[in-house]
Amino acid sequence: MIYVQVDFNYIEQEALKQVRLSRHKRLKWLIYKFIMVTLGAVLMGVGLELFLVNNQILDGGIVGISIIISQLSPLPLGLLTFVLNIPFFIIGYRKIGKLFAIYTSYGIAVMSTVTLLLHDMDPVTDDLLLATVFGGVTLGLGVGLVIRNGGALDGTEIVSLLVNDKTPFSTGQIIMAINIAIFSIAGLVFNWDRAMYSLITYFLAYKVIDIVIQGVDESKSAFIISHYYEEIGYEIMEQLGKGVTYLEATGSYSGDVHKVIFVIISRFEEVKLKSILDDIDPDAFLAVGGSMSEVRGGKLKKKKTPHL
């Protein structure tokens, strides 16, 4: 029998060191999240007060309702936004999670404070088109940053998630229906020009949110069928630095067995992929899927010695 002397003090010290490192990383991660939520909330407050509100252009959701009430009463927008969203903090805490509720309540508190501080300032521009475009882009950047980092800035997003489970409509359709109702009210309260400008703002903000959350360099899936699959796979790894997967497929009509190349590419790499196919096999079958919301793992870095 062999006896091994074990230094338990050393093991304990190493374990404590790993725990401290883990806590340190988590703290850095939380600080980064709060910074991003703060930045997003500030951007939304700036977009509202310096572009939209004083030009009577609305955002959607609870913020849009708050804008309408603030225009018809002496109550400040920041206070209304915070108070009207309180029930949704509670719903978010119970249905989605504690961290989501914290990020959301903190983000809305920051946004409300910014709108209160900027309330008496003149808008950056009186041109309605410029206010619509820059207001929508600023809102989109702000909301996108907050959503990407685990929070929300409007209670209607939480409502749509809850109602979505009980109706045949998607979350996006529910939010759109709510906002159309709000913009219709805006048309009656103010005028229809403002309602249409508000709709443009909403559309621009929606597209910018999509870009911020998914990134400009969004991923797509590509399937390729060719007799020269090995050469194509090699060039994809060499020129694009992407790992490829070979799948086996059987044709329903011919019964022939084919090798299918599966690879994840960005929208900017799609042209290069087509160029590779044109050089090796112009008759290769290529199917490129739509944007993918998330891609994780896998070896996407270029390999010095590719394995075929």
Rank of each mutant, 00 (worst) to 15 (best):
Lys207Asn: 09
Ile213Ala: 03
Ile211Gly: 06
Phe203Leu: 15
Asp217Lys: 11
Ser221Ala: 12
Ile209Glu: 04
Val208Tyr: 09
Tyr229Met: 04
Ile200Lys: 02
Ser219Arg: 14
His227Cys: 06
Tyr229Asp: 12
Leu204Met: 14
Lys220Ala: 07
Val216Gln: 07
His227Val: 10
Val216Asp: 00
Leu199Val: 09
Ser219Thr: 11
Ile200Ala: 12
Val212Pro: 03
Phe223Cys: 05
Ser198Cys: 07
Ser226Arg: 09
Ile225His: 06
Phe223Leu: 14
Ala205Ser: 14
Ile225Thr: 07
Tyr228Trp: 04
Asp210Leu: 14
Ile224Thr: 00
Ala222Cys: 07
Ser221His: 06
Ser221Asp: 11
Ser198Thr: 09
Ile224Asp: 01
Phe223Ile: 08
Asp217His: 14
Val212Asp: 06
Ser198Val: 08
Ser198Ala: 13
Phe223Ala: 09
Ile209Leu: 12
Ser219Met: 06
Ala205Asn: 01
Tyr229Val: 05
Ile211Thr: 14
Val208Ser: 11
Ile211Pro: 07
Val216Ala: 09
Val212Thr: 08
Gly215His: 07
Tyr228His: 15
Leu199Cys: 04
Phe203Tyr: 15
Thr201Gly: 01
Thr201Ile: 02
Gly215Gln: 13
Ile209Asp: 10
Ile224Ala: 05
Ile200Gly: 01
Phe203Glu: 08
Ile224Trp: 01
Asp217Thr: 10
Ser221Thr: 12
Thr201Leu: 02
Ser221Gln: 11
Thr201Pro: 00
Gly215Tyr: 14
Ala205Phe: 03
His227Pro: 13
Asp217Met: 12
Gly215Ser: 03
Ile213His: 13
Ala205Gly: 07
Leu199Arg: 00
Val208Gln: 11
Ile200His: 02
Leu204Tyr: 04
Lys220Cys: 09
Tyr228Asn: 15
Leu204Phe: 09
Ser221Lys: 10
Val208Leu: 12
Thr201Asn: 08
Phe203Ser: 11
Ile213Val: 13
Tyr206Met: 11
Ile200Thr: 05
Ile213Asp: 05
Lys207Met: 07
